[in-house]
């Protein structure tokens, strides 16, 4: 049986009294794109740095492709392409020299692969890094993560600072990695980003695992925030009885609620009231957590 791409058991890391991550049980299967979703400070980067043996666990274990992250850190790092959430390049180098340097520290890299990645992302390899914008530096960071063509990619907030076109190119790279059987752990605080590309995702909050879902589960349970304005006074009782409606507030001609599942029943019920305007949006991350999991904090993966 093939070892999971990533497996953590009771993985815990405290910084003094502050909890980085606690009792994390996580399994990422080979060949999947796995989202690691949580707000800033939730413990995503701590978990990733534990996987790469940059920091050491307070307790618990972490394995990557069957290798112990602490005992076999060198072998683990040989198998991982990593994009840190927080980094700074050597500003005195240009992009090409920087990638050459990082590419050959403890390994080899195919210049053709680097050139191809740079071209697809529009990364400028000629200019000194100190003159590049944050977005252009992020392109280089993505190139250095992908250039070794490793079986596992760990990407911490990869789309930060990227414009929509480059984001599209980045997601294409992730799709290609999946098609090639590589595994991707994509850490993000952006729900839409995870929804767009991941097969499954884990939600973390305040250093604890909240849940692990497939994207199909998420879509089934998709929650939208709806605000509706009608031409005639609305009857709250009509809407309260609809399936999937929650947090309903009706005030004369306006209605606010969350809708889980399709919007059709709500629209049908509102039609007789002469709908003037309707606004529907995805919840932000905190609203998403509350809607999906309520106040429940921890759920160990089954």
């Amino acid at each position: 049986m093939t070892a999971p791409a990533i497996e953590t058991r009771d993985l815990t890391r405290f910084y003094g009294k502050h909890r980085g991550v606690e009792a994390l049980d996580l399994t990422v299967h080979g060949g999947e794109v796995f989202g690691f979703l949580g707000p800033n400070g939730a413990g995503k980067s701590t978990t990733i740095r534990l996987l790469l043996d940059l920091i050491r666990p307070t307790r618990g274990t972490a394995r990557v492709l069957g290798l112990d992250c602490q005992g076999q850190g060198l072998e683990v790092r040989r198998l991982v392409g990593y994009l840190p959430g927080e980094y700074r390049f050597y500003e005195n180098l240009d992009g090409r020299r920087m990638l050459e340097y990082l590419g050959h520290v403890g390994g080899q890299v195919d210049p053709a692969v680097v050139a191809s990645l740079a071209e697809r992302l529009g990364a400028d390899l000629q200019r000194p890094i100190r003159t590049l914008s944050h977005g252009n530096k992020q392109k280089l960071a993505i190139v250095q993560a992908f250039m070794h063509e490793t079986p596992l990619l760990i990407l911490d907030e990869p789309t930060t600072g990227l414009d929509p076109l480059v984001q599209q190119a980045f997601f294409a790279l992730v799709e290609e990695a999946r098609a090639a059987g590589r595994t991707v752990l994509l850490s993000s605080h952006n729900l839409g980003e995870v929804e767009r590309v991941c097969d499954r995702f884990a939600s973390v909050r305040q250093g604890r695992l909240v849940g692990v879902e497939t994207m199909a589960d998420l879509r089934d349970r998709a929650v939208r925030l709806v605000s509706l304005t009608a031409g005639r006074p609305l009857d709250a009782g009509v809407f309260a009885a609809l399936p999937g409606i929650d947090d309903l507030v009706v005030d004369g001609l306006t209605l606010h609620c969350t809708v889980q599942g399709p919007l059709q029943p709500l629209l049908a019920a509102a039609a007789p009231y002469e709908v003037v305007d309707i606004l529907s949006r995805e919840p932000n991350l905190e609203e998403f957590f509350l809607a999906l999991y309520g106040q429940r904090e921890v759920r160990h993966e089954g």
């Binding site: 790469l52 940059l54 980094y87 520290v105």
Partner: peptide, 14 residues
Amino acid sequence: EHKHVDLLLARPVH
């Protein structure tokens, strides 16, 4: 201090 460490030590190097 300069935050180079993650990029460097995430490489397969002792």
